[in-house]
Computed example of a mutant assay.
Amino acid sequence: MERLWILSCTLCVLLSWMHVDQAVAEPQYLVAIPAVIDAGAEAKFCATLRQPSGTLVMTVTLKSREKNTTLFTHTSNEAFQTCVQFKAPLVQKEVQDFQVEVRGDTFYSKQVRKVMIRASDTFTFIQTDKPIYLPGQKVNFRVVAMDNKMRPANQLYDVIELQDPNSNRIGQWLNETSNSRILQLSYSLDTEAREGPYQIIVSMGERNISHNFKVEKYVLPKYDVTLNISEEVLIGQED
């Protein structure tokens, strides 16, 4: 996987570090993060601090136009190496600033790199609990989003609407989010609901998916069952 490397010094200084007197050498730090992160997913970066001169504070911040999110703050006078997990923002596609700042009494350094956050490839499908409903019944349905590894995915549904046979919108839900779970919704049909094909449409940005079901007055089939059994049953019979 492509990595984003952030260094406190130029490459030539880093390579010549072994030849510098350690008593006067400056701190070295390294932070690695993937250059592309899936929106809403668990992401991770790793930070290393070497040869600190006194007490240093490392702060890692993810910055967008709307807000700044502090992902990590650590104060130490000793070398350390750690990895930090965080939840990526739920956006469609956005480039944000990944900032690393190291501050001490006699040392200060700040590096900023770009990180791409984009919605992962997901597929979404809709299910109803029945294919046919009577007027007045409740339609229970769910919307499921899965990533390319068949795991529940975070997905923002801009509009979820229910249309009758005349394409009239009779139900609507706005800005629903899956939060890595199955989104379950329901709608109670009117007792005088028009019979015919109904449609559930889910809009996600420029993508739309739909699912159809029917409303009609149906009668469950009737049938008779005749049992022919013996008048006597013996103990020990298998049947």
Rank of each mutant, 00 (worst) to 15 (best):
M1K: 04
R3A: 14
R3P: 08
L4P: 11
I6A: 05
L7F: 15
L7M: 11
S8W: 01
C9W: 05
C9S: 08
L11D: 04
L11Q: 07
L14C: 10
L14R: 12
W17P: 00
V20Y: 03
Q22C: 05
P27H: 02
Q28Y: 14
Q28C: 11
L30K: 07
V31K: 06
V31E: 06
I33F: 12
P34V: 01
V36N: 03
D38L: 02
G40N: 00
A41W: 05
E42H: 00
C46D: 13
T48F: 03
Q51P: 08
P52G: 11
T55Y: 11
T59R: 08
L62G: 03
L62D: 07
S64P: 02
R65Q: 14
E66R: 06
E66P: 02
K67G: 05
N68A: 10
L71A: 04
L71K: 04
F72R: 01
H74Y: 07
H74T: 02
N77M: 08
N77G: 06
E78G: 14
A79T: 08
Q81V: 01
Q81F: 01
T82D: 09
F86G: 00
K87P: 00
A88S: 15
P89V: 04
K93E: 02
E94S: 14
V95H: 09
V100G: 12
E101R: 15
E101S: 15
R103H: 06
R103K: 13
G104A: 05
Y108N: 14
Q111S: 10
V112I: 13
K114S: 04
I117Q: 00
R118F: 09
T124K: 12
F125Y: 15
I126H: 14
Q127P: 08
P131Y: 13
L134D: 14
P135Q: 09
V139A: 05
N140Y: 06
R142A: 03
V144Y: 01
M146R: 03
K149A: 06
A153Y: 01
A153Q: 01
N154L: 00
I160Q: 05
P165D: 06
S167F: 11
S167G: 11
R169Y: 07
I170E: 07
I170V: 14
I170H: 04
W173E: 13
L174E: 14
S178W: 00
R181Y: 00
L183D: 01
L183H: 01
Q184V: 10
L189P: 05
D190M: 02
E192Y: 10
E192A: 09
E192S: 13
E195R: 04
G196P: 10
I201W: 08
I201T: 13
S210W: 12
F213C: 13
V215I: 14
E216W: 02
V225D: 07
V225Y: 12
T226N: 06
L227T: 14
L227W: 12
S230T: 11
L234H: 14
I235C: 12
G236L: 03
Q237N: 13
